[in-house]
Design a protein around this nucleic acid. Structure first.
Lengths: 359, 359
DNA sequence: AAATTGCCTTGGATCGATTCAAATATAGAC
DNA sequence: GTCTATATTTGAATCGATCCAAGGCAATTT
């Protein structure tokens, strides 16, 4: 595995094999890359030399520089790496991205970092042919970094403002409208909203104005707009609808529900901006003996598989997650510049967590 | 972003910047790699040139060859890539691996492939500093491939036979004993086993002999040995204990329970070789109004987080998954050759799914 | 004025391969 | 024996950086 040169050892290179076999390194390279053009006798000799010296084929590091293609795409997020394995939405998305990669033989590199400094470095030095950027919350910095690499990249779920970057997202306003209309048509008139972050690291009750004025997190803002536009159409005074912002985890969802159900007017319908929140809410409601959908209806957002097996199964606004992943991978690998921005349609999946408003 | 040379364009290199700024390439390199040793005036000039030519920093491809370190570890499996995001055990393991990577700033490359040919190529050409190999089922081919790369690598959960490869695993026999003893001490005498695969693509009732004779899947075999050795110690005739092999999914677990509970002697205790199976079993039992642990006790294996929140919470043999991930990453990154084989201790976590045998 | 010191800068060597135009060998035709 | 066509092989150039010994230069010592 190593040659001895003046007392110190170093890994065997293709050139060492070539010398040992008495051929040029060009020929040695051909033995591995295009064996069919090398005369059999020579080929065997080179292979024998390789075997003897414990050489196990050309080092990808060297090949890479020459070839230029890594054959892997980077998936980046500003969350810790474990986000990819913890978050239900990320998992479904990654599963679909990985299927698309499997189909084309490309690998996946996970790029992230504990702190912001690391993150910049990691993105700058990632060995990938392109990036898929998860823009969860205020991912604009991430987009900026990825863009500086001057590699093909697409943003998933990007703030709809930035027209200049390639992005695959959904129509948050339309999706939210769907959810709100569904509940309103069931006769619900007292609503509450479980919102995603609209400003950094905040949770607690917020007002519509606060959400509107925060420039980041356009997903949160658009979903709220969609909800409220639709509710207004039904003559509901949206200024009276409580909005509670959570961190999309169990603890803050429960806190939100405690808050909401302590208000004088209990809601009969909850609009949750993620399935994760909706599922935690389902747990809380069951533990508090509030029947779903008997007393309270709830509609989630995302369409994660857990929603299909919850108790009760969750009505939700399903994103075409698999399609988004496929498109993203395609955009990177083909890099024909065809993709600029793409808003995919969402789908209201009606299950058992929503029903007529109680009389 | 590109320079024009005799009619064709090519990406800007560091050398182009150096020339444009009138410095040597060595200095240009220092501007990016160790800016503090370059005089400010020069530094600014080079940076300006870079800016002007749209150069966004040294290409990692070039750096890699020189540095030799990719700063990423490969995680390989023979399953499709999406396994990493679908399987609960894999997910917990990946979460812990990614935490360890985050802590050291290393990236993660997922390596897998649809078919065997691809897999070989993907492993041979992966740009990584080492491999962590998931040896789920008969992963010996995978280990062989990884080994040929001559990079540091560790196998997770390897067949305990192969003494030559570095591996991190658990003592399956001891873990299984723990589970069996726990139930036996509760007075249980009628057992059933929900087993993992022991041969390819099979599910259904099997005998102890069948499991023993299958050479792959030593995990399944060892767990069964552990169960039965311990039960025998309590004077239980293990030849009468039904074993049902599942595919670790809901459907086959339910089929297994239908089968087991249709037998003349209903068990009062179930030993499940994975938490995933145990959790599906819990669902089935609840739906059939069989009280846990009133009528039937059940003990899982793995220690996935879902087991802590199931109803009832699952007694299980917890693997030190986080520790395994940490050790694996450490072994790769430090590569001090210190790790050869390591069997980590397992832990019986007693929760509410096990209790005294019914009178 | 010469010598020493410290700070920057230079340019050649190197990392490990692939590529391709040119050179060489081999065989068959005339 | 020469010529041509074909099959192999060669070796220099290239990919894009980093490293480092050696050199240049200005400020300080002797």
């Amino acid at each position: 595995m190593t040659v001895l040169t003046s007392g110190k050892t170093r890994p065997v290179r293709l050139a060492d094999i070539a010398k040992a076999a008495g051929v040029s390194h060009g020929t040695a390279s051909n033995v591995f890359a295009r064996p069919e053009i090398v005369r059999e006798e020579v080929r065997e000799r080179v292979k024998a030399a390789a075997e003897a010296m414990g050489y196990s084929g050309p080092d990808p590091k060297g090949r890479l520089l020459r070839a230029g293609k890594v054959n892997a795409i980077g998936v980046a997020t500003a969350e810790p790496l474990s986000y990819f394995f913890d978050d239900p939405f990320a998992r479904v998305m990654m599963a679909s991205i990985s299927q698309a990669c499997d189909a084309t033989g490309a690998g996946i590199s996970l790029v992230s970092a504990a702190n912001n400094e690391q993150l910049a470095w990691n993105i700058q030095s990632a060995l990938v042919d392109g990036f898929i950027v998860f823009c969860i919350e205020g991912g604009s910095r991430l987009v900026e970094l990825a863009r500086e690499r001057k590699l093909p990249f697409v943003a998933l779920d990007l703030d709809s403002e930035n027209e200049a970057v390639a992005a695959i997202g959904i129509d948050n306003i339309a999706g939210a409208s769907l959810a709100a209309r569904h509940l309103a048509e069931f006769g619900h008139r007292r609503f509450a909203v479980l919102a995603l972050e609209s400003a950094d690291a905040g949770f607690g009750p917020v007002t519509q104005e606060q959400v509107e004025t925060s420039s980041l997190y356009s997903g949160t803002r658009d979903r709220l707009r969609g909800y409220f536009a639709e509710l207004s159409r039904f003559g509901i005074d949206v200024s009276q609808v409580p909005i509670y912002e959570t961190l999309n985890d169990e603890e803050t969802v429960r806190a939100g529900l405690e808050h909401i159900f302590a208000l004088p007017q209990r809601p009969t319908a909850i609009l949750a901006m993620s399935d994760r929140m909706a599922l935690h809410a389902l747990d809380w409601l069951r533990q508090h003996d509030i029947a779903v959908p008997g007393d309270v209806s709830i509609v989630g957002f995302d369409g994660v598989p857990e929603g299909a097996v919850s108790k009760p199964p969750l009505t939700t606004v399903a994103q075409p997650i698999a399609e988004m992943g496929r498109l993203a991978v395609k955009a990177i690998l083909e890099n024909d510049g065809s993709l600029s921005r793409q808003l995919l349609p969402v789908d209201l999946v009606i299950r058992a967590s929503s029903g007529p408003a109680p009389a």
